[in-house]
């Protein structure tokens, strides 16, 4: 039964991901991405990682993908062919990825499963029912340093985004004396 559910989720993830890059209408692509996020969340639920599933939907489906749709609609790209003449680049990226996947599936499989068992640590296994608690515990003890580094990187990215956005809007119609003198000249 669980094999069947996994097969369904995995199959849908693959099908939806192919549709994301294969469909011509960008809105349809975004919608298939939504379907894919949902099935990834479903996989998390089957692994008893409900917290991850909920966060997956809140962050990716609820926020990021809405912004994608936002951009697609503002640009109003109906059926843009520019993005579909990239078969050579796609092939170039795909072949190494396929080879990596093959290596992982054949040779590295045993070490990977052994490693993934202990990702949450033995203490987390004991309190498995409360997944949220386990994630919080490991994130703020074992992986505290990477977590803080990641938040710092995100902060830098946020500041960068604000700086870039501010320059673009501020310069053409600058209400400061500088802008006025330019207009006079």
């Amino acid at each position: 039964m669980s094999q069947l559910i996994f097969a369904y989720f995995a199959g849908m993830i693959i099908a939806a991901s192919i549709l994301v890059v294969a469909l011509k209408n960008p809105v349809y692509s975004a919608l298939s991405l939504l379907v894919m996020f949902f099935h990834v969340a479903g996989l998390f639920v089957t692994l008893h990682a409900e917290f991850l599933a909920a966060v997956q939907i809140i962050v990716y489906a609820g926020a990021i993908l809405v912004l994608y749709l936002f951009v697609v609609m503002i640009l109003n790209v109906k059926q843009d062919d520019r993005y579909h003449n990239q078969w050579r680049i796609a092939g170039f990226v795909c072949i190494p990825l396929m080879m990596e996947a093959m290596v992982l599936l054949s040779g590295g499989a045993e070490t990977r499963t052994a490693g993934s068992q202990t990702v949450l640590g033995p203490s987390a296994q004991a309190i498995a029912p409360d997944n949220t608690f386990a994630i919080g515990q490991t994130l703020f003890s074992t992986y505290l340093f990477p977590f803080e580094v990641a938040s710092l990187v995100l902060l830098v990215a946020m500041i960068g985004a604000i700086v870039i956005a501010k320059r673009e809007i501020g310069e053409p119609d600058d209400p400061s004396p500088m802008g006025q003198t330019k207009a006079v000249e």
């Binding site: 919608l31 939504l34 489906a61």
Partner: peptide, 25 residues
Amino acid sequence: DINIGILYILAFASLAAYGIILGGW
């Protein structure tokens, strides 16, 4: 009574925006 109850509500509430955006588009 799932143990992530409130996150579950937030997750699905965030999806309601899709109906509005797609309907508008």
